[in-house]
Simulated assay, not measured.
Amino acid sequence: MKGQEWYQADEVAEEYDAKRFSQGGRLIDDREQRAVLDALSPLDGKRVLEIACGTGRFTVTLAERGADIVGLDISAEMLQQGRKKAQQAGVSDHLQFMRGDAARLPFPDDYFDAVFAMRFFHLADTPASFLSEMCRVSNDQVFFDTFNSYSTRSIYNWALPMGSRLYSESEVLRLLHGASLRLRDEEHDFLLPYGFYRAIPNRIAEPFREADIAVGDTPLGQRLASVSYWDASVE
């Protein structure tokens, strides 16, 4: 998988949230949290797996809302940050963090009610195999996001330290079909790329975000959005 060495470095794990979700990046976190909660709710008693859970920002949020959740990541350093976050939130007893490989999930078939991954598929070398594994261990729902071709994401994609895979809508639909998943819902957002928001203070980012949403609600905005959220069910 792209960027594994970079992703697992101690200093990256320690600074990951601060670098990506401070300043205007808070608007990104707010949108992603809403996307996950809207797709997976209601959560009380639901058995959930998060793949590539990183520092646990979604894992902890879902545990706080009653999910029986496992967070899996390849980086021991990221998981350590997640455990600290869970302890601070008082939910350490209600979730489990595991180190593991998304290509070989250590769970039986149909074990979870929902499986999701955020900020994962842009790093995946073999997205079809990863999506098939997600489908295998879910008895109902699979949710994930992608960065999109033909969007502003492509402008700075080359500058990312690990590179990024971009997807067209037709490619995602082929992946879903190949994994025996049926698309239930899709949302497209962020005409302006994430890097733009992270580079400016929140007070400056907010007016840009309002304009982004307004244009994004138009047919043209939907086609040029840099991020998509895909909600699918197991057939």
Rank of each mutant, 00 (worst) to 15 (best):
D231T: 13
F144S: 02
I155H: 15
R153S: 15
S22L: 09
T126M: 12
K19D: 12
E32T: 07
M134F: 06
D110W: 09
D101C: 07
F208G: 07
M162D: 13
L175S: 01
Q80K: 14
A214W: 03
D10A: 14
A128V: 07
A117V: 11
A114Y: 01
Q96F: 09
E133L: 07
D101T: 06
R165N: 11
D109N: 11
N139W: 08
L160Y: 15
R57I: 04
W6M: 08
R20K: 06
L49W: 01
R184Q: 14
T126W: 06
A214P: 00
P193G: 06
E50H: 01
Y156Q: 09
S170Y: 08
A179L: 02
G195L: 10
S41A: 14
G163I: 08
R136W: 00
A128C: 02
F147R: 01
Q33D: 10
I28Q: 08
S75A: 11
D212F: 07
A128N: 06
P42T: 08
V172G: 03
S228D: 07
S168T: 14
Y111V: 06
D73F: 04
F208N: 06
G66Q: 01
S129N: 10
D68C: 09
A52W: 01
D17P: 04
M134I: 05
S75C: 10
K84L: 13
G90A: 10
E50V: 06
E187A: 13
I69H: 00
R184K: 13
V137P: 00
S168A: 12
Y167N: 00
A199S: 15
V234S: 10
M162R: 10
A35H: 06
E206H: 06
D29G: 07
L224N: 05
K84I: 10
L181H: 02
R31L: 15
A159I: 14
F196V: 06
E210D: 11
I28N: 05
Q81A: 11
R83E: 15
D125A: 13
Y16K: 02
E235L: 15
G54L: 01
G195M: 12
Y197M: 05
G45E: 10
T126A: 15
T59C: 08
R153L: 15
G3A: 12
L183C: 05
F190S: 02
D101L: 07
L49A: 04
F116R: 02
A102Y: 01
S132L: 12
V142E: 01
F143W: 05
F21V: 03
A35V: 05
T218R: 11
D101Q: 06
V137I: 09
V48L: 12
A232W: 04
Q8A: 15
Y7M: 10
A13D: 05
F120K: 02
M1I: 11
E32Q: 10
C53F: 04
R136D: 05
L183K: 02
I69V: 10
A103F: 13
F58A: 14
S149Y: 12
P193E: 12
S75P: 01
A67E: 07
F196M: 02
Q4E: 12
F112S: 10
R65G: 03
Q23G: 12
R165V: 14
E15L: 11
I200S: 04
D101S: 06
R119K: 09
V227K: 02
V91S: 04
D212K: 01
D44E: 15
M118E: 08
S151F: 11
G195H: 09
V215T: 07
R223W: 04
Q222E: 13
Y197P: 00
